[in-house]
Amino acid sequence: MTPAGSLLIADGLHKAYGRTPALDGAHFSIHPGEVVAVMGPSGSGKSTLLHCLAGIVTPDSGAVHYGGRDLSKMSDAQRSSLRRGEFGFVFQFGQLVPELNCVENVALPLRLNGVKRKEAEARALTWMERLEVADVRAKRPGEVSGGQGQRVAVARSLVTGPRVLFADEPTGALDSLNGERVMELLTEAARETRAAVVLVTHEARVAAYSDREVVVRDGKARDMAGVR
């Protein structure tokens, strides 16, 4: 797939932690509304690729372009603001603030963007209804099941209406049925809002929810779209 019309493009990313190279010249691009699975064995650099794409980590070299701007040339504050406004995140575990209840957790990104509490929680609740977890709104994360917690996390990632959704092993801690449901709801919601989804996973059945997959091996990303 050509980078033309792409929402997010990464070019020649290099990143090393200490002496271990995590990314070694990775390329990546994604279109609006597209779900791309990033696959590969553990330690291949999948997560690092996601972190670089999302502007959480700055690559040692290479560029990440989002909407015509190079993320690696932005200040930390600018990237934070971009992540708050344009990106959404779902992780495998440990992502909900334990002392906030579920609806407050979902409303958190909106509130970080300065939305008033009442409005933020109302919008959060709509998303929780979408993800079928409205009934646990007043519970704390410690009091809900793993599947419910993960749906709350998905609701949180979608609440700001992100252009790109980054999901790092979103079903890693769930059983098949729950994982499937979370993936269904996630991809459905993303397609509806024309959000691009970068889906890091090592599970084929999760990757099957994507439109195409990119395989990361030895720090290099290989786009499998053209291979038939």
């Binding site: 959480i56 934070s80 971009l82 992780f91 992502q95 603030v97 970080l112």
Partner: peptide, 9 residues
């Protein structure tokens, strides 16, 4: 780290 990821100041 997660909070930082979604842009918490």
């Amino acid at each position: 780290s997660v909070l930082v990821a979604f842009g918490t100041r």
